[in-house]
Amino acid sequence: MASARRRLLLTLALATLALALCGLVVGSEGWSFGALTDPALRQVVWDIRAPRTAGAWLTGLLLGLSGAIAQGLFRNPLAEPYLLGSSAGAGLAVVIVLAAGHAGGQAFQLLGADALLRLGLVGAAFVGALGGVSLTLLLARGAQRSTTGLLLAGVVVGFVLGAMADLVTMAAPEALRGKQVFMLGTTGFLGWTSCGALALGALLTLPPAWRFARALDALALGEDSARSLGLPLPQVRMLMVVLLALATGTAVAQAGLVAFVGLVSPHLVRSRVQAPHRFTLMASAATGGVLLLAGDVLARSVIAPEELPVGVLTAVLGGSYLMWLLHRRGAR
């Protein structure tokens, strides 16, 4: 058992290293050892490829972690990080900023338009994601009652905020294209500043997730059993939701709605080892990092010199894997 875990961790570490190396070498401008001396190539490698590689890994890490938290919290293998309204909230905020940017000083002189633009897409997406989750919590009257209530509230908030975003794009069709790209997710604009924000997100979420992972193990026995074990359910739920929102919000703000990484990573881990949540959470995070790193390298090289939005790739690859997993389970 322990050796299976060790094997998985070793595989993940090796894959991360290999893919990170690919991340430095692969890109539309190719690679030559001149990168070590030629200043232009050096900038391409160290200021563009290195941060987007690190950024993709960190984004995947956060999504993998929040996927594992969501599936543990809702005791549902189909749960994913965007379930509690974070994606819809971020989407709405992004669309509003885009629309305000286009209206900028022309059609409607919104008092807030200027401030919104300064907040930028990244800030807006982060605030929107947290706002979406807060709205879900508000609707479910906190995390007091049941997990199902929370889930339902998340779905409702997702629909309503999504519809509001559609409404804004009807009024300002120029925002449509930007919204679409945000929905697909992209790692192409990640710089060192983005990496800093992502790393901060990881620092804020990974240690508490590690510390309180045992609560998810208790929750896996059912809410009644967990309660009888003396677990303060509302507080645990709240903490997990906050971690989920923070991790997802940070990732979404920097890279948009990258699909399937959060959903698939915990499955990948569980298909290899059965372990308590402490291990699953961390291994899922590492798996998410590897997946998005691979996605980023592929996105740059599949149709080079043009780029695919990384979200399209993760959706195709992650989706195919999930289908294969379901098929294999059905066959058993």
């Binding site: 232009a40 294209r177 192409g188 604009f189």
Partner: peptide, 18 residues
């Protein structure tokens, strides 16, 4: 050389074009 679009400009390519 084509450098993508408004939403998905290829940063690496643009920088390399100096």
């Amino acid at each position: 050389p084509k450098t993508g679009g408004m939403e998905d400009a290829n940063v690496e390519r643009i920088v390399a074009l100096k």
